[in-house]
């Protein structure tokens, strides 16, 4: 088997708060092969966000400390490479789609300003030059790729002028500005309405498939996992308890925790009776 695009190997992280050190990740390993869609699913406190932050290099150290493990991107260990090299990868080779479309955008700059700045820094890190007209063209193109109807008008808008769904599209466009190979999405669409979320998930899925990107989806929603990813890692209390094909795991979970998680999800088909058995009526 060839080496995957992203490999997290035996990653352990601990946090020190109030003078006490508590481990939060215990030897987490996961693979994201090129052109594959992988989900990391877990409830709050499972460590999925810490894992994501460690991959993106966003962990604040201290209080966090990576006690062991390695994170390979394209065969190179991100944790041991010089900071400068790592910065080159962040936002270019691997990009992030953030969860909260309101707080991830700066309210005082237009969409065009913010996207052009991202592109400028990405170009600078990679030693590329691009005229400002080319840059704007790239911004418009990217906005069109996320199916914005009127890219030039959206680009001139301030975040507050856009609906939640449009802001989430802008965040996806931002992640696509550079020629990314890996997209890391942190609960995209959870802050949105169901119908808007469905649109965003479909868009993300279409983009990833059309461009041959790898997707690492961090989420707590099993439905989102099934809609977007073909393989899944289930995380609980800092440990990967189960991994495999999404359909297979949802059909027949092997681990007790996965089973209880799947059983807890209410089904659209109905038939679930809430309430504990044996309660006097």
């Amino acid at each position: 088997m060839s080496f995957p695009l992203l490999r997290v190997e035996n990653l352990s992280v601990s946090f020190t708060t109030y003078g006490r050190t508590v481990p939060v990740l215990h030897g987490v390993s996961l693979d994201v092969p090129a052109r594959s869609q992988v989900a990391l699913v877990g409830e709050s406190g499972s460590g999925k966000t810490v894992t994501m932050k460690a991959i993106m290099g966003l962990l604040r150290q201290p209080p966090a400390r990576i006690t062991s493990g390695a994170i390979y991107y394209d065969g190179a260990d991100l944790l041991t490479m010089p900071e400068k090299e790592r910065l080159k990868l962040r936002g270019t080779a691997m990009s992030m789609v953030f969860q909260d479309p309101m707080s991830s955008l700066n309210p005082v700059f237009t969409i065009a300003d913010q996207m052009a700045t991202i592109l400028k820094y990405a170009d600078r890190r990679l030693g590329r030059t691009r005229s400002s007209r080319d840059r704007m063209q790239r911004v418009y193109d990217t906005l069109a790729q996320v199916r914005m109807r009127d890219p030039e008008r959206v680009a001139r808008a301030y975040p507050i002028e856009l609906s939640g769904g449009m802001r989430q599209r802008v965040l996806i466009a931002m992640a696509l500005l550079s020629e990314t190979d890996l997209l890391i999405a942190d609960e995209p669409g959870t802050a949105l309405d169901v119908t808007t979320q469905a649109q965003i998930l479909k868009l993300l899925k279409d983009l990833v498939e059309a461009r041959g990107l790898a997707l690492l989806m961090i989420t707590h929603n099993l439905g989102v996992v099934r809609e977007t990813c073909n393989s899944v890692y289930v995380m609980q209390k800092g440990v990967i308890v189960e991994k495999g094909e999404t359909a297979a795991i949802f059909e027949a979970p092997a681990h007790d925790y996965t089973r209880s998680l799947i059983d807890a999800v209410p089904r659209l088909t109905g038939g679930r009776r809430f309430g504990t058995a044996g309660v006097p009526a």
Binding site: F15, P23, V50
Partner: peptide, 16 residues
């Protein structure tokens, strides 16, 4: 908050 380990949350207020 979700990043803080649960053990730390169980420490008493006064101690924190």
């Amino acid at each position: 908050m979700s990043l803080a380990p649960p053990e730390a949350r169980r420490l008493s207020n006064a101690y924190q």
